[in-house]
Design a binder for these strands. Structure first.
Lengths: 212, 212
DNA sequence: ACACTACTGTTATAAATTAAACAGCGTAAA
DNA sequence: TTTACGCTGTTTAATTTATAACAGTAGTGT
């Protein structure tokens, strides 16, 4: 199984990264159902895209199949992991332990991943100090110390929009590198922190627009 | 207040639609706080984009301000509404009444919108037949009849991934026009139904990738 | 009135993303 | 064997999206 080392994946397109994550999730299902090989057009139709796009994405990450029987599922999964995953597991905190946060946390617990939600934060006395959805819940005021304790690198914001702004400073100070923001208020983080804003109402309004 | 009718917004870019939704949400907040006018660069900085992009988006929808005091907030809100909203309110159903669904439903109840979540579906006997998060919950087996009853046009899928596939047929049969899919399994809907797949793990993996 | 400033609306350019075209090669059938 | 087929990997083109450049104009202060 000789493998030619291709150009290092210096900077992959944003969309390709998203699709790689989706490919992997689908491939894991294939593997679980005992499937060992898959063609590009099969993977494509599962995602509603073209086979060309799949092959191009895989080309960009330097993946090459040995056979003409399609891609080896297991090999491809670990190859994508080389791209997406960091060498060590990344610790994630979730701030605002409401329904959305509990849904997200449970969902993550189901999947094995290099990303682990290890701490949550809230201001509700009924949650603080206990385990919620399987992880400890601390008071939001203690974020900086607890984040250091748990070596938090990423943060998910699922708290009420009005309360989000006051978390920007502690999150920044704690050395967090990336933020997934479900809040409807855009937040002014320093430029070196990667922020993904994500509003569910926008999604539904988009569906409404394009479905007519 | 003379208004020149511009070219009809035949087909707007996907990204512009998303931003319009975000603009409006921000504008509504401004209005609530008593603000009547806003400059493009203000709106831009709130969203972490450039003023040019804001102006270009507004140009695409044919919006023009009368004054040099910035955009009139109220006028712009209703103008965006003309683009995004359908004339009548659209009824939405949510399938799988777990934590995520309850979060989404509560969130929607807070905002006034032309999109209304009016029915939910589940298979859990503790939910079926009752009101959950303020809306009636029916058994998933009765989807087609209940959807017709409530004139459902859009559907949000928040049920376990394994159970999603068997909802495709009834949803299609019920004449639903758009789907927001939080399930991790891509679903094979007919092409004339607009589907937005949306996986939270993908989002977080993307944040993880670009934050290093 | 006059120049000046600051903002908008539009056009032009560049970058990112997707789709198409095509060459190479292993496999399988005749 | 050899011919045809189908799938991959790469290059090229097209499309979409974002950025930049610029012209026009209401307001402001002198």
């Amino acid at each position: 199984m000789k493998k030619i080392v291709k150009s290092p994946p210096k900077s992959l397109p944003e969309r390709t990264i998203e699709r790689l994550s989706e490919y992997r999730r689908m491939l894991l299902e294939c593997l679980a159902s005992g499937r060992t090989h898959i063609y590009s057009h099969e993977l494509a139709s599962m995602h509603g895209i073209t086979a060309v796009q799949v092959r191009r994405d895989l080309m960009l990450i330097g993946f090459t199949s040995d056979t003409k029987k399609g891609y080896d599922v297991g090999t491809l999964i670990s190859f994508i992991g080389e791209i997406l995953d960091s060498p060590k597991p990344l610790n994630v905190a979730i701030i605002g332990m409401g329904n959305l946060a509990q849904a997200v946390t449970h969902y993550f617990n189901g999947k094995r991943s290099k990303l682990r939600i290890v701490a949550s934060f809230d201001i509700d006395g009924r949650k603080v100090g206990r385990n919620v959805a399987g992880i400890p819940c601390y008071h939001a005021d203690d974020f900086v110390e607890r984040a250091a304790e748990h070596n938090i690198r990423l943060v998910i914001l699922t708290l009420p929009s009005g309360a989000a702004a006051q978390m920007v400073e502690p999150i920044t100070r704690a050395g967090v590198r990336g933020v997934l923001n479900f809040t409807s208020t855009p937040l002014n983080f320093p430029l070196d922190i990667y922020v993904e804003d994500y509003d569910i109402i926008t999604l539904l309004e988009k569906v409404a627009y394009f479905s007519k």
